[in-house]
Design a protein around this nucleic acid. Structure first.
Length: 759
RNA sequence: GGGUUUGUAGCUCAGUUGGUUAGAGCGCACGGUUCACAUCCGUGAGGUCACAGGUUCGAGUCCUGUCAAGCCCACCA
């Protein structure tokens, strides 16, 4: 053995061997209950970052259960990650001076596909690099045909069950990304802004968005507000355009805020939209989808809202309608991806009715059929489920499967189309306005986007003709599915569930579903876990997992979240290269409490690297003694039964070992991985090396059985945390002690977990 | 506004159901090259466990309040 442990010499070699021997693939034994975890599928848009290394917690559980002799499956996958990926790709395009608008959707899709394939392979390599005991023979990708086929069937089923509808309402629209977002995808930030008091003649209103006055359709006051009682039903006048609107009463209006009178702009504010619906007010738009002003006045039209605000204020001031300006700190919604301000806009989107679907989920969590760890998340999870809103599943991007609905253009002439013509010219307009100039083939070939009015008729099956008029000029919806619609069915699709005919699902499904543990970052508890449960119950009538285990976020030394923009993202491959995978793995686990943030520092990784070296050298010491003594290497009969040893030190260390086994076991069962590792570290380094090993130097030969017993037991306990170095040492010993009972298993990875009474 | 978590050594954090002198890693001080390891070994300094009350024979650990920080949720224009 070398003087130092050099991970580079062993890691890849050992991983390949494990893989070759099929150790990652569970042996299905119907008499035994399997232990199953689905890997939270990494986004194929990006290489993995250090946060992903937290999957090591899953690896620890998997390896532990494998050593307990359970059929153990850890199923890997890759996610096409719709918006995320398209966003990353568009940034790449931008560097080349291009944008998504330069390509028709087929071309763009193909380009992204190619880009993603590269990253998918990189992701797989990185997971192997970290030693993850994933069953690669069951790997799935969210865009593979079988998976997509299933999720389309789910859409159909939801539709047949009347749980899908199209709705026109205010959505969170990012004019930069060009798509709507669900409420979950909107970040909120505090911003110092101003509150402007405007003179509407009969009444004064206060607003932060003076540029939207052109789309006002009413002014609302609280019915209990004495100041305005007399004005209800009267009129107010919008400045600059001198338009008269009604003053209405609604208790959603806060009396205390501003003047207590609220201008109602249903097209550009969610609250206003709600009030507008209630009072049957019209919808006037003054900001279009690319973020520019329309339907205003000639000084403003065509400007972006920011400039428009400035200009509007200027004009208001000049006309004496700007009464006063107050500073105001409030929160605004921004796009979680590009950080631009979210524009609430009215659009038609596809929704899933979620209220009913959430009921069995709530029951399951309440009754404890599905548990959460740490348990404190139960409350917030239930809270979200109980107040769930309908789920907008449509996204206006190309990257992902399109919603399987078709529109006949003849039957829906008001459909708005955007496409690139044969001559490479971008064309926009309603079908009714352009059908005479462009053939259907030309439109379909260069199609970028279509936008159908909410009342448009669609059909679900691509039959070859419109079921209504029999025509063949129809186009598929260009909206794609929200990524979570696909990954929300991950436990079902990857295990071979058959949506159309559940009884015909694959054997894997019946054996492994529900899975044992779902471990993930709490960031996506609602995004992902919530949807998986909803769809799991809806389709399979069972929870997808028995336990939801939430792990922590990795932050830098100063407690800052790792993000690219901060430039503090650590590259796991680089760390592995420098310190070894085991060191990185242990650095993320050692001394952490469940679901609290983890500050990763280079010092800590170094400390863990030193620990792997300590293991290595203690082993080297034992091996050297083994070789220099008269120890018969090939037989186990020569060994004394460790239990019969009389020496006090021996007894003490063995008692300590027994206690350690018990404690590690207890901690692992309670998901206290940090504690478990700390216990092993302390025992091995200080009790075993510093103390016992030093003491027995004078009677090495005699102590050999004890040394071996303690070493192998520690290797086993440590294996889930540091699989490589432990396996490397085990193999080194195995070569010398082939027949020894401690080295029966071909690989430490599949050896038997230490039992309490084994000493 | 509602919810939730955290506040323990210079730094990053453990401390499981309340039980003897409160722990680790890193850092710091001093001392060690002997045949496992300088990625090492030994010795040591350093904490009124945020603050104030309470329960208890006994509290870092349970309860109440205060202060501070973080996170999540929410339609304050």
């Amino acid at each position: 053995m070398d003087k130092r442990y050099q991970p580079q010499l062993f890691e890849q070699k050992i991983y390949k061997e494990w893989e070759k021997k099929g150790l990652f693939t569970p042996k299905v034994d119907k008499k035994k209950k399997p232990f199953t975890i689905l890997l939270p599928l990494p986004n194929a848009s990006d290489p993995m970052h250090v946060g992903h290394v937290m999957f090591v917690i899953e690896d620890i559980m998997i390896r532990y259960h494998k050593m307990l002799g359970e059929p153990t499956l850890w199923l890997p996958g890759g996610d096409h990650a719709g918006i995320e990926t398209q966003f990353v790709f568009e940034k790449k395009l931008a560097k080349k001076g291009k944008s998504r608008f330069d390509y028709d959707r087929k071309t763009l899709y193909r380009m992204i596909w190619k880009f993603v394939e590269k990253n998918r392979k990189l992701n797989m390599f990185q997971m192997k690099e970290l030693g993850f005991a994933l069953d690669w023979s069951r790997y799935h990708y969210s865009l593979e045909p079988k998976i997509v086929e299933q999720i389309l069937a789910t859409f159909k089923k939801l539709h047949d069950d009347n749980l899908i509808y199209r709705g026109e309402r205010i959505v969170n629209y990012c004019t930069y990304c060009g798509t709507a977002f669900s409420d979950l995808e909107v970040d909120h930030v505090e911003k110092d802004d101003f509150l402007y008091y405007l003179d509407y003649e009969s009444v004064q209103i206060a607003t932060t968005r003076p540029e939207t006055i052109f789309a006002d359709v009413a002014v609302a006051v609280n019915p209990k507000d004495k100041r305005y009682k007399k004005l209800i039903g009267k009129e107010a006048t919008i400045p600059l355009i001198n338009k008269k609107v009604k003053i209405i009463a609604d208790d959603l209006v806060e009396k205390e805020f501003g003047t207590g009178a609220l201008k109602i702009t249903p097209a550009h504010d969610a609250l206003d939209f709600e009030i507008g619906q209630k009072h049957h007010l019209p919808l006037i738009t003054c900001i279009e989808f690319f973020g520019k002003m329309i339907n205003t006045i000639k000084e403003i039209d065509g400007l972006y809202p920011k400039q428009a605000r400035k200009k509007t204020l200027e004009l208001l001031e000049r006309s004496g309608k700007l009464v006063k300006t107050e500073p105001l700190r409030h929160t605004i919604g921004i796009c979680y991806r590009c950080k631009n301000i979210i524009e609430p806009l009215p659009t038609s989107q596809w929704y899933v009715k979620t209220k009913k679907l959430a009921e069995p989920v709530i029951d399951s969590v309440k009754s404890g059929d599905t548990k959460l760890f740490p348990p404190r998340f139960k409350k917030v999870y239930l809270d979200w489920m109980e107040n769930i809103r309908d789920w907008n599943i449509s996204r206006q991007i190309v990257w992902g499967p399109r919603i399987p609905a078709w529109y006949c253009l003849e039957c829906n002439p008001e459909i708005r189309l955007t496409f690139i013509s044969k001559r490479g010219k971008k064309v926009k307009g309603n079908y009714s306005g352009i059908f005479s100039k462009y053939s259907f083939k030309e439109i379909a070939g260069g199609l970028q986007e279509l936008s159908a009015p909410v009342e448009a008729e669609y059909f679900l099956k691509d039959k070859g003709e419109c079921p209504r008029c029999g025509g063949s000029d129809y186009l598929q919806e260009t909206d794609t599915f929200d990524t979570w619609f696909l990954s929300g069915q991950w436990p079902l699709t990857t295990l071979g569930f058959d949506v159309k005919n559940p009884m015909k699902s694959s054997e894997d499904f019946f054996y492994f579903y529900p899975t044992s543990v779902l471990d993930t970052l709490w960031d996506i508890l609602f995004f992902w876990v919530g949807r998986m449960m909803i769809l799991g119950f809806y389709l399979a009538n069972k929870t997808p997992f028995e336990l939801i285990h939430l792990h922590a976020k990795v932050v830098d030394e100063r407690g800052q979240k790792m993000s690219k923009s901060k430039g503090n993202v650590a590259n796991p491959s680089k760390i592995v290269e420098k310190y070894g995978a085991d060191a990185l793995r242990m650095a993320l686990v050692y001394g952490i409490a469940p679901a609290s943030n983890i500050a990763l520092s280079e010092k800590k990784i170094e400390a863990m690297r030193n620990f792997t070296n300590k293991l290595w050298n203690a082993s080297r010491f034992i091996l050297m003694n083994l070789e220099s003594s008269n120890f018969k290497l090939q037989t186990s009969k020569q060994l004394l039964k460790v239990k019969s040893l009389k020496n006090k030190d021996d007894q003490q260390i063995l008692a300590g070992l027994e206690k350690l086994v018990e404690e590690v076991d207890k901690n692992l069962k309670k998901y206290r991985f940090g504690q478990a590792l700390e216990k092993i570290y302390q025992f091995f380094w200080h009790q075993f090396c510093d103390d016992y090993l030093e003491k027995v130097k004078e009677r090495r030969a005699e102590a050999l059985p004890v040394l071996l017993e303690v070493l192998v037991t520690c290797l086993k306990l440590l294996h889930p945390f540091a699989p490589f170095v432990t396996e490397a040492i085990y193999q080194t010993f195995k070569v010398k002690l082939k027949k020894h009972s401690l080295f029966k298993a071909d690989y430490l990875m599949v050896s038997v977990w230490p039992q309490k009474d084994s000493g």
